[in-house]
């Protein structure tokens, strides 16, 4: 399975706002823990090794260009 990088949200601004709202009221440490849990949940949802590998590589490029 190829990683979907074209827009895939019905309402991108709404989804982005929801992500930020989910962090509201969390300390920085709690936000990190929240993100870790979210990554694990979404990785399992995707499941496909190739798509996950592509996602990891893309995230890496975005972090350390």
């Amino acid at each position: 399975m190829k990683l979907v990088t074209e827009p895939n949200f019905a309402d991108p601004d709404e989804t982005y706002a929801r992500l930020l709202a989910a962090h509201s009221g969390l300390s920085e440490a709690e936000s990190h823990a929240f993100n870790a849990a979210l990554v694990l949940i979404l990785m399992n949802h995707i499941g496909d090794d190739a798509a996950i590998a592509e996602a990891l590589a893309l995230a890496h490029r975005a972090t350390k260009p």
């Binding site: 823990a33 849990a37 694990l40 949940i41």
Partner: peptide, 9 residues
Amino acid sequence: LYRDSTLAL
């Protein structure tokens, strides 16, 4: 972080 998160989930 990931270890604790896994156990929490």
